[in-house]
């Protein structure tokens, strides 16, 4: 059966170069979609501004005595949660992608199983970086000071990005597992709200009741907020919260990324 053998040997394994090209082409698609529908990037641009204004003027006086102190306290935490908020929207988008036939087309092309999802990560990284820049820039206008150095600021940004991208995998998994985009959004909100507010992002935890403190203590968002605060304000331990965030990011990615990739192929 020479023909059969010929078929077997013509197995076009996808090399690393081809993988990169595929992810690149799909990332380009994601960015062109933003260009064609600029409103889709409003969340990345406006949300950090709205949250900064809202929180510093509503809670600023009450939590820290004055806006300026509060901005210095809250913005590093907001940096972490910005990546998170953007990340949770990815699943909603992926879900609606599946409602159209585009995903069917991609899944019948001879490309790697992870390419489409990796291209989402790539585009999301750019969106996050844009959002971080706007957040930090706007907060600096309102009086945020970088009390350390640009390198540590970059480290804070990198850490927030890394954690945000690990959450993108969760979000994509949800997006492919739940039936409708609305359901994805609902579940995301349900998970995100307690995680965000039950943390040290917006207020110091020492005034919270004991049971909540134990929750916030183990909440990775607290570690993320503490790490960013240490890296930007130069106060508090750096190594511990950074390690905790790194471990969480790696663990979340290690568990959810393979599940998401498997789900991508199997989704009927």
């Amino acid at each position: 059966m020479t023909t059969a053998i010929a078929y077997e040997t013509s197995d076009p394994r996808i090399g690393p170069g081809a993988h990169l090209r595929h992810v690149g082409a799909l990332t380009r698609r994601n960015l062109m979609r933003i260009k064609a529908d600029p409103e889709s990037i409003l969340d990345a641009v406006l949300v950090p501004i709205i949250l900064t204004v809202l929180f510093s003027y509503v809670f600023g006086g009450a939590v820290s005595g004055d806006q300026h102190t509060y901005i210095q306290y809250m913005i590093p935490g907001l940096l972490g949660t910005t990546g998170l908020n953007l990340a949770m929207a990815v699943g909603t988008g992926l879900n609606s992608d599946f409602q159209t036939g585009v995903m069917d087309r991609f899944r019948t092309l001879p490309i790697g199983r992870a390419s489409v999802l990796l291209s989402k990560i790539a585009a999301e990284t750019l969106r996050c970086l844009l959002s971080f820049t706007i957040l930090i820039g706007f907060a600096m206008v309102l009086g945020l000071e970088i009390k350390t150095d640009p390198l540590q600021l970059l480290a804070a940004v990198g850490l927030s990005l890394l954690f945000g991208m690990s959450v993108v995998w969760i979000s994509m998994l949800l997006g492919m597992s739940l039936r409708s985009a609305q359901a994805v959004q609902g579940v995301s909100m349900m998970v995100m709200m307690p995680l965000q507010f039950g943390s040290s992002i917006f207020a110091p935890t020492n005034s919270m009741p004991g049971w909540l403190q134990s929750f916030t203590h183990y909440n990775p968002l607290s570690a993320l907020a503490d790490a960013c605060r240490a890296l930007i304000n130069g106060q508090g331990a750096v190594a511990h919260p950074v390690t905790v965030v790194l471990l969480w990011s790696v663990a979340i990615t290690a568990v959810t990324a393979p599940l998401a990739v498997a789900r991508f192929r199997r989704r009927a």
């Binding site: 076009p12 996808i14 979609r33 529908d37 019948t108």
Partner: peptide, 19 residues
Amino acid sequence: RQLRRTIGLTGQYASVDEL
């Protein structure tokens, strides 16, 4: 993987990116 290289699919609903 080889099979996907052999086929083209046009579905009931146009599978193009609208944007």
